[in-house]
Design a protein around this nucleic acid. Structure first.
Lengths: 217, 217
DNA sequence: GTACACTTAAAACGATCGTATGATTGAAAA
DNA sequence: TTTTCAATCATACGATCGTTTTAAGTGTAC
């Protein structure tokens, strides 16, 4: 087989090590050792570590989010004038991320996605370039399916819906002891089905009236 | 007012900076500068950075988890021979963590809890000492409330239930733009009510039969 | 064969990291 | 007053960090 280019070797090694040990916890030397390339080649191909981080994230986020929008568009087309079914909308959001677990090539990336929410600066950079449209389109689709849900509750429930995915991705190395062989992480279809079942029920839950006041803001 | 001890000053500064920038992203020098104490006092009071991290987490996790078990015990007592209501069980899990947001003293800790899941080594250390009993007791309570839920689904749904909290805590600095003023983070009662409504509906969702096979294990 | 652009290599830069050392402080114990 | 000891101080150690420099290869066009 054709040997991988230096650039791709760096991206793959960085993706793996970033996922396992975090961005700050992974040195460029660890990456170049794993990738079996020279240290300076990182700066040659990516200039800085921050740019390498962005490149690692962008490479897969592009694919995942394009697929998400595709599947959402298919769901909307299939529904015609009606709003797409909530379950199908949720699957369009969850599945493209989880499908990566099947690929030996990209299997570390989901764990990395699970880290994204805690990396404030990186998240804000990526949100504008890769997530803002996804958020907008899915919000609109869920809104159409649940027209009676007040916007604040919609916002909170979308956050919870994302949290279901994030937690499952981030927890993979650590919660397998808790999930005592409950279900294998590579059972993508089962995981998607479980997430969709949980999230759709949560999104459809009756809205509690009493919302407390906030003293500070 | 009485000035805080050096040890407490270090813990408070570390809690804040760890929450904002992560463990690897925060140097001991940044902590001692923020705390206005000498660099060497960290090693005098805590020996190593890792021990400081453990101390920062243990200080609040002890309180939060004690309160969780207290509230769960109250719920079980109130229910008598019956299983405690799912809503009350969930509130016992969520509320003690969110109440910290009210306290100026501890307001950074929830964000730090949101980081816990991505710190594999730290999580495993803390799980055995602070979380294993909480997990066991809450699992049992939810199991009693939902006796027909197969154990694998219970495990997954508990993971999702935790994810709702984790995401909300970790996302605070970053998702406020997304949650465009939907609800203020210091509205603890409202947030708890929204989490409980979502999670209880998700936990009670009908179980989808078809669970895919896993090719790899 | 020479010129040229692209890529990789070895080595080192200054900065910053966690940690350790030994002196100094200050108040209680004797 | 003298002794004692926990606490704090300034300082420095060796290691490792991201980044840079300079040179050596590589293939292609002329």
């Amino acid at each position: 087989m054709i040997e991988k280019s230096t650039k791709k070797r760096i991206l793959d090694a960085a993706e793996k090590l970033f996922a396992l040990h975090g961005f700050d916890g992974t040195s460029l030397r660890a990456i170049t050792t794993e990738a079996k390339v020279n240290l300076a080649s990182v700066n040659y191909h990516f200039q800085t570590k921050e740019a390498l981080v962005d490149a690692v994230m962008a490479r897969r986020l592009e694919v995942v989010n394009r697929r998400r929008l595709e599947m959402l568009a298919e769901a909307e087309h299939a529904a015609g004038a009606n709003p797409p079914r909530l379950e199908r909308t949720l699957e369009a959001f969850y599945r493209p991320a989880l499908e990566l677990l099947r690929s030996p090539e990209a299997k570390y990336f989901p764990m990395l996605m699970g880290r994204l929410i805690t990396e404030t600066a990186l998240f804000q950079r990526l949100f504008e370039s890769h997530l803002v449209e996804v958020e907008r389109r899915f919000r609109a689709a869920i809104r159409r399916a649940l027209p009676d849900l007040p916007p604040p509750d919609l916002a909170w429930r979308m956050l919870f819906t994302i949290g279901i995915l994030t937690q499952s991705l981030a927890a993979q190395p650590v919660l397998q002891a808790v999930l005592r062989k409950a279900s294998s992480p590579c059972d993508v279809d089962g995981t998607v089905a479980r997430m969709v079942a949980f999230a759709s029920a949560g999104l459809r839950a009756p809205v509690h009236k009493e919302v407390g006041k906030c003293a500070q803001g």
